[in-house]
Design a protein around this nucleic acid. Structure first.
Length: 398
DNA sequence: TTTTGGTCCCGCAGAAGGAG
DNA sequence: CTCCTTCTGCGGGACCAAAA
């Protein structure tokens, strides 16, 4: 089945599912459609490479584009921002000098020719595939091979001619689209359609969140829920810089003085991942795995682990309760979500007292030796469970 | 003594595979 | 095709040895 047919197939199935009100089938079709778009985005990214004319145009003309298209508006949610951005004619952003509905050559999605060949033996298959490849000399080909019914099946995918594309505005989907396919009268079809976010992902080689961020910045759209978080993180950063010192909080400094840069890195990571924040019961939270944090700090994850947990104990970051939260469904590990509260004297005073207990009340526990076990000893089961959350999961499972 | 990094373990969730 | 089981990769955390 080639690409055009498979897309048609999915669309037909979805239509049928909608008609029959079969929600499971609808979501299945949507999922298939999304993954098709995603794989096409990846393909297009590979075809265009890191530097391409669209990116260049965008970067060279961003000031001019801003003047021309800026919305300069504050919105409350990402949803609102997305809806606004969909109304922007992206031809001006990426320098697509074409008329609406008028076909032009698409540079980054090619037609594919699929040739299936079946053989009785592996050797024969290899020889014949060689021969077949000769026909497409000079063209990019890839081979899929598998065994079926005792036969050796080889499938050649030959990169064909460039496709046609055109720009359209979809009234039903309420957005501009870059449609790829063919506008030929007797063979009109579309392979895929990209919206402004997909295109941004392709040209700028990034994911959807960065695309939202980039376009918001370009168009002067401020998403209130994110900007508030950014401002708070910035205040936290300067609070740490100005107050987490030997003379203001001596014991706290003794405990985590060595790790201040790690705390700052987490705050910076929060700012960097601003558009990856999700709503939770506690407020806006973001996720970063131990491995990821360790990598950006140039350390091992088992080094970072106790430090992050000590920050959690001190109240410098919170691990929100995932079980009653609305997020995290289907995502990897909920334990890596962090909420960072406003830093102030009161919070640091409390942290100072906790540091006192850790260092000078009974067994001396330093930041890097902090663990579930000694957390229970010093602070009890309840607090330990709120920090080492997977322990709770494990306890429930047994 | 404290910090760091390697390695092991365990649970989870999605994928793959198999049965009906 | 659907449901159930098994497999696998990922990620957090523990422990221990080595480094600073």
């Amino acid at each position: 089945m080639d690409r055009v047919e498979s897309i048609k197939d999915i669309l037909d199935k979805r239509e049928l599912a909608i008609a029959e009100d079969d929600r499971r089938a609808v979501s299945k079709a949507n999922k298939a459609l999304n993954s098709t778009i995603k794989s096409n985005i990846t393909k297009a990214q590979e075809a265009l490479g890191e530097d391409n004319e669209y990116k260049e145009y965008f970067l060279n003309n961003s000031e001019h584009i801003k003047e021309l298209l800026a919305v300069n508006k504050e919105v409350n949610t990402t949803e609102e921002a997305i809806n606004l951005i969909h109304q922007v004619d992206f031809r001006y952003i990426f320098g697509l000098d074409v008329l609406i509905e008028k076909p032009f050559a698409c540079e980054f999605i090619n037609n594919e020719l699929r040739v299936s060949l079946a053989f009785t033996t592996e050797e024969k298959a290899n020889v014949e595939v060689e021969k077949e490849m000769e026909k497409y000399h000079g063209k990019e080909t890839s081979i899929l091979g598998y065994e079926r019914f005792g036969m050796y099946v080889k499938e050649l995918i030959v990169r064909g001619e460039p496709t046609e594309a055109w720009i359209t505005y979809s009234l039903t989907r309420k957005k501009y689209l870059y449609v790829v396919g063919s506008k030929n009268k007797d063979n009109q079809h579309s392979i895929i359609s990209f919206d402004i976010f997909d295109l941004y992902e392709i040209f700028m080689k990034c994911d959807i969140n960065k695309a939202i961020q980039g376009l918001c910045e370009l168009l002067g759209i401020r998403i209130k829920e994110f900007e508030e978080v950014r401002d708070r993180y910035e205040r936290c950063k300067s609070f740490v810089r100005n107050n987490l010192t030997k003379d203001k909080f001596p014991i706290l400094f003794e405990l985590i003085g060595e790790h201040i840069h790690k705390l700052e890195t987490i705050l910076e990571e929060g700012i960097d991942k601003l558009y990856y924040h999700v709503e939770s019961k506690e407020g806006m939270v973001f996720s970063a795995s131990m491995q990821y944090l360790a990598d950006i700090m140039g350390k091992g994850k088992s080094t970072i682990n106790p430090i992050v947990n000590i920050f959690a104990l001190l109240g410098l970051l919170r691990k929100p309760d995932v079980r009653s939260g609305i997020y995290g469904k289907g995502s990897n590990n909920d334990i890596t979500y962090y909420y960072i509260p406003e830093y102030n004297n009161e919070l640091f005073q409390k942290a100072e007292q906790l540091a006192m207990i850790l260092l000078y009340n009974g067994e001396r526990i330093t930041a890097s030796s902090f663990s579930y076990k000694n957390c229970i000893e010093k602070f009890g089961q309840e607090i330990a469970n709120s920090i080492f959350k997977d322990k709770v999961t494990k306890a429930r499972a047994s």
